[in-house]
Structures are given as structure tokens and as C-alpha cells.
């Protein structure tokens, strides 16, 4: 089927990039895989419309961002069958300073984190972020500044993150 092969091609081309995006949004590989799979499911469900009218890639990314801030969760009686998550050795950064920032990022509320990821990873403007997350421009700005404040204050209060480790 055309529909099917078009979707296959989309997944083949974009899945890795979506996983990268999912990973910076969620902060862990397991949730990233879940989020990507759920978003792709929704893309698949809307495929004929998405393919005609929208850019499937941006549709998937918007879906991921929105799902992530919506405390999305698996529906009852469904099981994810992706590869089992690697539970051990979940280090991300070789350097303490980066690792520290990464962990502080993990402690932010989802919406604050999403705003920062859209701003600093997706490089979107605040107006674009507002559109993606379906929130007001004012909220984007307040969430971003609150998130940055928290990161700044937790970083400055943590001696381990000063200077390069030797």
C-alpha cells in the first residue's frame, strides 16, 4: 500500500532523529523510546491527513512535545514491546560539569524542560514554542526564565560543578 510504504520511509528516515529529540526531551533512553513510539502511532493514525497537509516530521515533533508535557501514559491493556531498557550504566556525560547540568535538567518540571529543549535544542523562537506547546507567549517566557533560574541557582550552589575535573 502507498500509505504504508510512505510511512515506512518516513520512519526509516526520521526515527533516529526523533529518538535524539525524545532523548533530550525526556532525559532517558527508555522514555525516549516510549515517547517516539507513541508519537509515531499517532502519526500513523493521522497519516493520510498529515501527508497531504502537513509536514509529518513537524507533526511528529509537535506530538512528542505535547505528549511529553501531558503526563501521557500507556493505556490500559497495552504493552510496549520495544527492546528491554538497559537499566544499568545510564551515564550520559564524561564530565562532571555537564553531567551535573544534565541531572539538574532532569529535576525540572516537564513543561519547563520542554520549553528549554525547544529553545536550546530545536532553536525555536518563543512564539514558535508557544505554538508547538499550545501555551501563551507569556507562559513560554515565564517557564523558560523559571527553568533557567533553577538551573543557575542549583549549579552555583553545587561545588562539584565548578571548574573542570582533573
Amino acid at each position: 500500500m502507498d500509505d504504508e510504504s510512505g510511512f515506512d520511509k518516513f520512519v526509516a528516515e526520521q526515527a533516529d532523529a526523533l529518538l535524539r529529540y525524545g532523548y533530550v526531551l525526556t532525559g532517558n533512553p527508555h522514555d525516549a523510546a516510549d515517547l517516539v513510539q507513541e508519537a509515531l502511532l499517532r502519526v500513523r493514525g493521522a497519516w493520510s491527513k498529515v501527508r497531504r497537509k502537513d509536514n509529518p516530521n513537524s507533526y511528529a515533533r509537535i506530538t512528542m512535545a505535547r505528549l511529553h508535557i501531558s503526563i501521557w501514559r500507556r493505556r490500559r491493556r497495552e504493552h510496549l514491546t520495544a527492546d528491554p531498557p538497559d537499566r544499568a550504566g545510564h551515564e550520559v556525560f564524561p564530565f562532571e560539569q555537564q553531567q551535573g547540568l544534565w541531572e539538574e535538567l532532569a529535576s525540572l518540571p516537564r513543561r519547563q524542560r520542554a520549553v528549554l529543549v525547544l529553545r536550546y535544542y530545536e532553536q525555536l523562537t518563543d512564539a514558535e514554542i508557544a505554538k508547538v506547546l499550545g501555551i501563551s507567549l507569556g507562559t513560554v517566557r515565564s517557564q523558560a526564565s523559571r527553568g533557567l533560574d533553577k538551573l543557575r541557582s542549583s549549579l552555583s550552589s553545587s561545588p562539584a560543578t565548578h571548574g573542570s575535573p582533573r
Partner: peptide
């Protein structure tokens, strides 16, 4: 974030 993304799982 750019560095972290490189550590994302592969599809």
C-alpha cells in the same frame, strides 16, 4: 543538549 542527543538510543 546537542551532545546528549548523540547519546540517544538508535531506532
Amino acid at each position: 543538549l546537542a551532545d546528549a542527543a548523540e547519546r540517544a538510543p538508535r531506532a
